[in-house]
Amino acid sequence: MIRDLKLAVRAGGGFGLALAFFLIVVVLVPFGVGPEREVLARIAPGILWVAALLAALLSLDRMFALDHEDGSLTLLATGPLPLEAVALGKALVHWATTGLPLVVIAPLLGILLSLPGPAVLPLLVSLAVGTPALSMIGAFGAALTVGLKRGGLLMSLLVLPLYVPTLVFGAEVVRRGGEGLGVAVPLAMLGGITLGAFAVLPFATAAALRVNLR
């Protein structure tokens, strides 16, 4: 059933857009801070994480809005699949179409920012572990604002503060990895946030959807 949802979403979604956005943000940074390798290497973990976060944010407002407009969200709500499962499915689809490509392309962009070699693996792992949380938290924000005409901006305001813990621990994993320190603690925290988000937020998301469908 999640596969069906995936089909429906993919048919409507701009697949490569988030990826292109990620690329552009990362490319713009050296223009802003200058091309010195040491400076870039220092800020690379943060930049990559912030860019991933913004790219994930970009495609969130379409997550439920399209289904809300054409009425299929109402029909889904009256269907046999609980809205919690719909929310979970939507978040997973969002991650597969945005988060996963970001994980794959991030090491390449790390080269552009002179990311130190030992940090590449932590970058991959931290993005792989952390970006699902971004999608799930985003699904919650999208559900809160689904009925609103101009919900996109408001959604960013709601979602971005919720991204803080993920961002802190994600970037910390990369930074520590680059400096050869142990990454176990922040990585465990990052994984904890992701698991916690997937355990709790589908219910909050479904609750918000039900309120918005009233």
Partner: peptide
């Protein structure tokens, strides 16, 4: 038991 059909048909234009 209930099937609801609203004003909107819930059709995905790209499918």
């Amino acid at each position: 038991d209930i099937a609801y059909a609203s004003h909107a048909d819930g059709i995905k234009a790209t499918l």
